[in-house]
Amino acid sequence: MKKILHHRRSWMIVPAHDPKLADTIAQYKPDVVVLDLEYSVAPKYKEQARANLVKTVSTIATDDIEIFVRIDKASRWADVDAAMHRGLTGIIFCGVDEESEITEIDALINTKEKERGIDPGHIELVIILESAKGFWNLSEILQASPRLSAVGVGRIDLTMQLGPVPQHEFRLFRYLMTRTLVAGKMHGKQLLGAMWRPDSRGGVANQESTKLAAQQAKLMGYTGCICATPEQVNPMNLGFLS
């Protein structure tokens, strides 16, 4: 039984092929470790990143570190297969567009739980929305699997190409944060995201703007966020501190 001492505020991304990932985790102490198979893993490291997971998941997971694996939508089947080992808490699926994608991944996780001796229903599913289709279909998506524990607002400024508006926000950003909040609360999910501003492109935001983005998201009802870099862990933890 895991001893959870905190909310899941900071979800730190570490590339699954990074040989120094254990040091990074020890140094930054995020609430949640996200072993990445997606954006931070260039194509030539994908195989190696998948192969590392068996060992990494079992060695890193301790009583106070929760491990998630972020899968790549384009290779989600192989990625789930590579990630499902004892010690894993959940899967993060970015860029979901519709309900059927969740039903399919849920079934795959079911099968792998059985095969690998993991308690049925143990593996959580966290989704991060990045597309207009995903936001439009949000309510159906959130009801597609009982494993689904959290929903996040992802790189929408980048994937949906939402430029800045004179109100010093990304176009549509506040609406999509609110829409996700309402649907997420309705279905009892944790809300992940930060109120990013156009001068703090998510992945490269500095510590100050990261903390501010987290504080403002907390005021809206969000309780955690993906940290694209380890340096964002501390400001996220502070910003979401309750």
Partner: peptide, 8 residues
Amino acid sequence: YITLASMA
């Protein structure tokens, strides 16, 4: 709301 629907 209209923008999201059209983008979707």
